[in-house]
């Protein structure tokens, strides 16, 4: 079981790079929401590969500062992505407000940059869960883009919020490492499912047929 998870874990790392690549192909061809989503995928891919590389070169050193970029950039791109889909003006103000809050948090405690930030991740991801619910509601009567990706976001963000929040336990020295590993494994599996949804979305709606390329 553990080996399978390891394989899936590797697949998600390279998969995120592959997804970013296939979405980049149509970058100029599709709407703004698509562009923000591609930027999100690109950010994830860079961070994932960066973590892998960091592990090779600086074995044992904390890579948690990457986590800061992960959750802030994730919130930035996906907020903009949903702002394009939902067209609510309030979302822009919320985005700025959250960034101001995060800024205050890091200003008060600069050392947090090298630590894990459960408040930041849970706050941003819960907001994104709300956006995805709103978008699901909007899709009741009209067919919007990114339906599958939206479902993926809903499930992945709601479950990973808990995992990341609980993740702080993993850095408690009294806590046995194996527990945090269980959480990491569950997260990997959910993320893998999410990636499959992203791929299916691309395959169904954004794969450019050969005919159109030759035009």
């Amino acid at each position: 079981m553990g080996e399978i998870i390891d394989v899936i874990s590797d697949v998600t790392v390279y998969g995120s790079a592959a997804l970013a690549f296939i979405y980049l192909i149509g970058f100029n061809r599709f709407d703004k929401a698509y562009k923000f989503f591609t930027l999100y995928l690109l950010t994830i891919a860079v961070i994932q590969l960066g973590m892998k590389a960091w592990k090779w070169y600086f074995e044992g050193q904390s890579n948690l500062f990457l986590f800061f970029y992960f959750f802030t950039l994730q919130f930035l791109w996906i907020s903009l992505f949903y702002k394009e889909l939902l067209k609510f003006k309030l979302m822009g103000y919320l985005l700025i407000g959250v960034f101001v809050l995060i800024g205050i948090q890091y200003w008060l405690d600069p050392g947090l940059y090298l630590r894990y930030n459960p408040l930041g991740i849970s706050m941003t991801q819960m907001i994104l869960v709300v956006y995805s619910l709103l978008y699901l509601y909007r899709n009741l009567t009209e067919r919007g883009n990114f339906y599958l990706v939206n479902i993926g976001f809903l499930i992945y963000f709601s479950s990973s919020t808990l995992i990341f929040t609980a993740g702080n336990l993993a850095f408690d020295d009294d806590f046995v490492k194996s527990i945090s590993w269980i959480l990491v494994k569950v997260n990997v599996v959910i993320y893998f499912i999410f990636q499959i949804l992203i791929f299916v979305e691309w395959w169904k709606h954004y794969r450019i047929p050969k005919k159109r390329l030759s035009k």
Partner: peptide, 19 residues
Amino acid sequence: ILLALAILIFMGVAIVLFF
């Protein structure tokens, strides 16, 4: 934690199915 996670995922799937 695992139970809460299971419940969350279940709720997520239920919401998606409901919609």
